[in-house]
Simulated assay, not measured.
Amino acid sequence: MEIKEEFVAQTTKLKVAIIHDWMFTRRGGERVLEQILNLFPQADLYYLFGKPGKVLQLKHSHRFISSFLSKIPLIEKIYKNLLPFFPIAIESFNLENYDLIISSSSCVAKGIIPPPLAIHVAYIHSPMRYAWDQEHRYFKQQPKLTKPLEILRRFLLNRLRIWDVTSSVRIDKIIANSQFVARRCKLYYGKSAEVIYPPINIKYFNISNAQNIISQKRKVLLFGAWTPYKKMLQTLDLLIANKISVIAAGQGEELLKAKAKYGDKVEFYIDPHDEKIPAIYAQAHCLLFPAIEDFGIVPLEATAAGLWVVAPNKGGTKETVIDKVTGYTFYETSTESMLSALNAALNKDITPEDKKNMALHVENFSEEIFLQKMMMTLLDCLNSKRDMQ
């Protein structure tokens, strides 16, 4: 029996719950969530708050169940201030009738309370960045007796870390989206994780059909979520100062700030629709991805579209960018190293042989491989649990 047939045979009658943190935009985590939901037509989707009906592109109809936080007016604008309440909200879901629970988590979704006989598989996009390794990037002020609110903030983060560790014992199987994330799961939770890379819709970008627009000045693309830890705005400042032609695309407050600052010097695409993205890639010669990322779907999309990728030689891009084959890597803490790698990419033609190498590389991250590995892992979990009962 083929893996798909066996998977369908064993899971069709299971009652399945899929858990996600929140969704206001369709980013990498939401694309993974879509693939997981597509494996289970009968699954119910639980989430803290957001707009799954507008954000997700699904093959089947699912029941959506949100937490009590979703009733708060203007939740999309204030939710970051409600972080201390997230564990309470995620634990409030009643999952007693489910056989299989899959959490898709970059915050608290992995902390659900499963019933004793259910299997809980957690797909970890990242341990909570603001509570662990990037706390000091998000909260730069040091706690002082003269700043009681900052002391309270650090106290709450301390309690959140304790909850994050203790809730990890409720997971039967951890799947990480990269080796980088798997190492952090081991460090913070003391549990090993299997790595299954997020999927890329390779056919959508189709290297063989990609026609990079030829211009006298090769352009650099900055594309993604424009948040402080991704260093997009400060990188744009650097590129403008070095008279490098830039296309800026994505979503986030910092992108709006960038447009207000450089609207006459840079081509901007604010929150582009999926249909527009291949055309955006086609205008650039390379993608610059400045920060260390947990995985990074955008660099692989750029590779699938036939662009050089310039990215750090740490984190997720260390696993997805092959130096001098699919792109150029640099030391994340060195501006000089980044500019050197970027100039190397800008001065290097993209040959048919290069595009062939790019196409071979992204095949390792296809939707088919993702689904195959997920089905095999979930079947192993189901069979192991069955043997124990």
Rank of each mutant, 00 (worst) to 15 (best):
R153L: 15
K219Y: 01
K230L: 12
R184F: 03
R218H: 12
E150Q: 14
I162Q: 14
K219G: 00
F205W: 02
I202D: 01
P148T: 06
T146C: 09
N206K: 11
P199E: 09
Q211A: 11
Y188L: 10
L149C: 05
P143L: 04
L149P: 01
K144I: 03
Q211V: 13
Q216E: 15
R161D: 02
L187W: 05
I151Y: 03
T227C: 09
L157A: 04
P199D: 10
K140W: 02
C185E: 07
V169G: 02
W226V: 07
L187E: 15
Q141Y: 09
P143A: 07
R183Q: 14
G190Q: 01
I214R: 13
A182R: 06
W226M: 08
Y189R: 09
A210R: 05
P228V: 10
D164R: 10
I213D: 06
S178H: 02
I200P: 09
E150Y: 11
G190C: 03
S178R: 00
F155D: 04
I175P: 03
Y229F: 13
L160I: 12
N206G: 00
Q142V: 11
N177H: 02
V165T: 14
W226E: 07
Y188Q: 01
Y229K: 13
K173G: 03
C185H: 00
G224W: 05
V220L: 03
K140F: 08
L221I: 06
I175E: 01
R159Y: 11
W163M: 09
R161W: 07
K191C: 04
K140S: 11
L221P: 02
N201R: 12
Q141I: 09
A176C: 05
V169C: 12
K147P: 01
L160T: 07
D172C: 01
R154A: 05
I174W: 06
L222T: 04
N206V: 03
T227M: 13
I213L: 12
K191A: 10
S192M: 11
Y204T: 12
I200C: 08
P143R: 02
K147M: 14
P148H: 10
W226Q: 05
Y229E: 11
V195K: 08
V195F: 04
S215M: 05
E194F: 08
Q216S: 15
P199C: 10
E194I: 13
W163Y: 15
R218A: 10
K144A: 15
L160P: 01
N209A: 14
K219Q: 15
R218S: 15
Y189K: 04
I202H: 10
V165N: 07
R159T: 05
L145Q: 09
D164N: 07
I200F: 06
I174A: 10
K217E: 15
R154T: 01
E150M: 10
L221Q: 05
P143Y: 08
L221Y: 06
K186S: 12
R154K: 14
R153M: 04
E150F: 12
I196V: 14
I162H: 12
Y229S: 04
K173C: 13
A210C: 09
Y229M: 07
K173H: 15
G190D: 02
Y197M: 09
P228W: 09
W226S: 06
G224M: 04
Q216T: 14
A182G: 10
T227L: 13
